[in-house]
Design a protein around this nucleic acid. Sequence first.
DNA 1: CGGTCTCATGAAACCGGTTTCAACCGTAAC
DNA 2: GTTACGGTTGAAACCGGTTTCATGAGACCG
Lengths: 331, 331
Amino acid sequence: MGNSRVTLRRVAEIAGVSPATVSRVSRGTTPVSPEVRDRVLRVIEEHGYKPSHFGRALAERRHGALGLVFPGLSGPYFSELIQGFEAEALETGDSVLVLASHSRADTDATVLDLADRVDGMAIHGGTVSIDTIAKVAAQIRVVVMASEAGPAQASVSAANDTVKDLTRHLLVDHGYRRLAFVGTPDGSPDVTARWQAFLAAHKTARRKPPAEPIRVGLQQSDGAIAAEQLLDRDDRPDAVVCANDETALGLLLSALGRGLRVPQDVAITGFDDMPMAALVRPALTTIRQPIRELAATTARLLADPLDQPAGDIVLPTELVLRSSCGCGGVP
Amino acid sequence: MGNSRVTLRRVAEIAGVSPATVSRVSRGTTPVSPEVRDRVLRVIEEHGYKPSHFGRALAERRHGALGLVFPGLSGPYFSELIQGFEAEALETGDSVLVLASHSRADTDATVLDLADRVDGMAIHGGTVSIDTIAKVAAQIRVVVMASEAGPAQASVSAANDTVKDLTRHLLVDHGYRRLAFVGTPDGSPDVTARWQAFLAAHKTARRKPPAEPIRVGLQQSDGAIAAEQLLDRDDRPDAVVCANDETALGLLLSALGRGLRVPQDVAITGFDDMPMAALVRPALTTIRQPIRELAATTARLLADPLDQPAGDIVLPTELVLRSSCGCGGVP
DNA sequence: CGGTCTCATGAAACCGGTTTCAACCGTAAC
DNA sequence: GTTACGGTTGAAACCGGTTTCATGAGACCG
């Protein structure tokens, strides 16, 4: 239905002017005499003419859109990321096309498909292969988020080494002895960096290396799954460092559901400082990262016409001590 | 960089054939003699030719993409929805472009922009104005999800009236007297329908009408916010029906954090049956809706070339009784 | 051996815009 | 009165593919 779009040439015909003039009126680039302008505008209005992306994109050789590629998008983290990105893209008049590649096998093909519907692409770390990133980068501008990029691309990430401070806090300030880590290194570059920081803190504090990480995903249900592996056994850890707030909340929920006291029986920490972290009781000790700013910076790099130095931008993060680690305050 | 894409005409020139032949080889529509075919394929391979969406979309007058518009996308619900949609779209070779309109004011403009980058659009109920839906529908095919559509469009949703059964179960089978509802009717069509069912069940059971709903959003943090309004006061409800699992889990977490026992002190129910619902303790009583199927059906309607009867498809849902409502089993 | 039919191929139009280039207008300056 | 100039406008090329139509070569048949 309604597929009978009015074309530019049709408008020109009706208004009795050349196609070129209609184009000029439509985009307002070149001055056109008032009477002609009005006449054309009236025809445009009356017939509901709207320039098609088809023709425009072809002629301008740009899509006016940026791509955003994620490993998935459950949870507030990605939600916040998208919002920050869209807000910034709006400034430059670009649309945002989101691709949520749920770790499917054909993600690479899908990403390549997206690559020629957009002018630039932001790819979240751990989503697609290095190889594919290179292919996309050969075609359009690419910025990698939350991961170090290859040599060619720029990247924006948040400082993960604050996990070192957090771990030191648990080991030294609170004196916990058996720490566990929930998250899968190698799964995503972000988690890998956090695990490395966790290890490094043990070494710095001259403690023996921690146990192997509990390899689960980053969703809340993964925290619940981790709980089954961590909380029901005899040598239950006295503190658990989770790769993000979602798993931490899943773990917290499971701990409370089992009748355990947090932090007395087990301390729990997260990463992200999402809204829920402050609302929950006990409030969650975590690390705040500037998600919106991360997204906005990425979008700016993509939109910026002049070539940026293709550097790796690292945004600062901040340790937020609340009660779930054992610090005072409302229990 | 690398913007120097090889065009179809260039390939034709190098291979010493006409552009038409290259096009035929590239898409494999018309038979081409083996030797010419091989020659062209080799040139394509060597020079890394890839047909541009620009030209193809213009000539074919189709984008090969479907749009998916959401009010936001935190949480497993939307994640599942996207996966189901993408899986189905993959069958027909369409890409999926996701638009997460975080209830921003300019959503309508953004949706209209997306409208001419795709061949069809699935719009989640409560995202954009009826007016805008009509405008989009005048241009491309539209299917509305999780909401009744206007007269023109088709829609796919899940049966929300199972909330009636759930409410009856709480009132009659368990004998709870003070039920509360968490969620904002009018916020989304889905929640509106659930609230109506909640009301209807009270009327059927000849109970006096329930108190006003706790008007919060659909995220987990909203459940925590609702907790502050519900759990700290004297006339605490003895059962809470939440608009979805996320808020139910936020509420559950807050209840446990306050030292309340669930379901003894307060029963809690949700809607969706997301993975976490079964993992949590006490396990969450909820209503299972076939999210993937909902998404897949929507995608099928959009891809189907023959005009569907533009009806409203309603998928069945199922009451899942676990322990958070007071039913036996593992507490 | 001539006529017809099939199949591969190229020329050209087309999809719907943008932009360059040149022509044209009227006016100002000499 | 003529020339130069600034400002509008239209013709045409172009963006990168697809597709129709016509043509030519070769196979098949009588």
